[in-house]
Design a protein around this nucleic acid. Structure first.
Length: 376
DNA sequence: TCTGGGGTCCTAGGACCC
DNA sequence: TCTGGGGTCCTAGGACCC
């Protein structure tokens, strides 16, 4: 299958660029403080102030921070932090409610700009980030031009990571923030990342970094040098070798722009006051299930699996799952969800903090695909 | 300090079959 | 009476990401 390479070689030769053949690069684009930036755009008077976006914008409620502006981050506020705590840390912060529609609209604008870049293959990862695959002789120049285009058309700043794999591009972006560009390849990966802790890797959190440490692996360099087989007893046949690969920054180099199709949908709520009465719980499950059904029905796809996740009072999560015969009948799905709910600790008093209802859809009703995590 | 809401994927262990 | 070994499917739970 040398044909595409020869074609590229010929094309390069035609342009008189032989000896400077264009290389395939992965770019990772990440909008800077995206949600806060969108809020500042429509309220310019907020520029330069400590802005915190979370929940319904009421710091007395149970909710967490979605995004904080850099000014608020200077006080130690970060996403995921309880809103109540954040408000205490920055007493004069401006606290705003989450407005998903506004962020989605801004996101679509940004993605349109990315797709309009010459030769770009765009793989969207979330509201505020995407991979871009591109052939370029000077990826930094390409990145700068891309940042300029995004800024001109959306008034939003972004950072760009350049890499020879998806993982390296993704990690590179953190060194480009804010509004910068950084390149991470096989050549400088260990120089830049080697002495850092494994938790700084994309896909390694507190639990896994702690388990790695018990194996004597604390730094990225140590993980990179580890034998993949040695990690199998602790992490299993897939995750073990995957972590070793992650330590080296290796993995897929392919940006996949196949349209995203969800595997399932879910809704979650946290109650402002714990639920204790069976009637309340019944109502909550019905309401949640109805919302998920709307999302599923909106795609015109059937349901094959149900999951209820129940958060009890001292932060215990219980899962109840059922495979069901494929159906598109909302009444049947609701009835089966209520069956599942009957399993919620019927025998002892309960206090519910929150509920999550999930519905999964058959794989063969999907047309697109996306790389699996272990594929990265 | 006390924990959102939307996702994805992996693993262990049990049930069941041959 | 006691028990191999492989495979698949399902449930529960966990971890991580934005």
């Amino acid at each position: 299958m040398a044909f595409p390479c020869i074609q590229r070689w010929c094309a390069a030769a035609r342009r008189g660029r032989l000896g400077h053949v264009t290389e395939p690069w992965v770019l990772h684009v990440d909008l800077d403080q995206f949600i806060a930036a969108v809020e500042v755009l429509r309220r310019p008077e907020l520029a330069g102030k400590a802005v915190i976006v979370g929940g319904r914008g009421d710091p007395t409620e149970r909710a967490v921070v979605s995004t904080a502006s850099y000014e608020a981050r200077a006080y130690g506020v970060g996403s995921g932090m309880p809103l109540r705590i954040a408000a205490r840390k920055v007493p004069d912060a401006i606290i705003l409610p989450v407005d998903q529609d506004a962020y989605l609209a801004a996101s679509e604008q940004v993605m349109a700009v990315l797709r309009s870049q010459p030769g770009a293959t765009v793989q969207v990862l979330g509201w505020d980030e995407a991979f871009i695959g591109v052939q370029a002789t000077d990826p930094e120049a390409y990145a700068r031009q891309l940042q300029q285009a995004v800024l001109e058309e959306t008034r939003l700043h972004c950072s760009v990571g350049i890499g020879d794999t998806l993982v390296r591009a993704k990690v590179a972006t953190t060194f480009g923030k804010p509004a910068g560009v950084f390149r991470l390849t096989e050549d400088n990966w260990l120089d830049v990342m080697g002495s850092r802790l494994t938790i700084e890797l994309w896909g390694v959190g507190t639990k896994v970094s702690r388990r790695l440490a018990t194996l004597g692996i604390k730094t990225v360099a140590q993980l990179a040098a580890s034998n993949p087989d040695d990690l199998v007893p602790e992490f299993g046949p897939k995750m073990g070798p995957w972590y070793a690969q992650l330590g080296r920054g290796d993995g897929s180099r392919t940006v996949d722009d196949t349209p995203w199709v969800a595997r399932g949908h879910s809704r979650e709520t946290t109650f402002q006051h714990d639920l204790t009465e069976p009637g309340q719980i019944d109502d909550a499950v019905r309401e949640l299930a109805a919302h998920v059904l709307e999302d599923v029905a909106g795609e015109g796809r059937p349901v094959i699996g149900l999951t209820l996740k129940v958060r009890y009072v001292p932060f215990i999560t219980k899962t109840y799952a059922r495979k069901i015969p494929e159906t598109s009948d909302p009444a049947e799905v609701l009835a089966r969800t209520l069956d599942l709910m009957a399993k919620i600790e019927p025998d002892r008093p309960i206090r519910l903090l929150g509920l999550r209802a999930e519905m999964t859809m058959p794989a063969d009703s999907r047309e697109g695909h996306t790389p699996t995590r272990s594929g990265w």
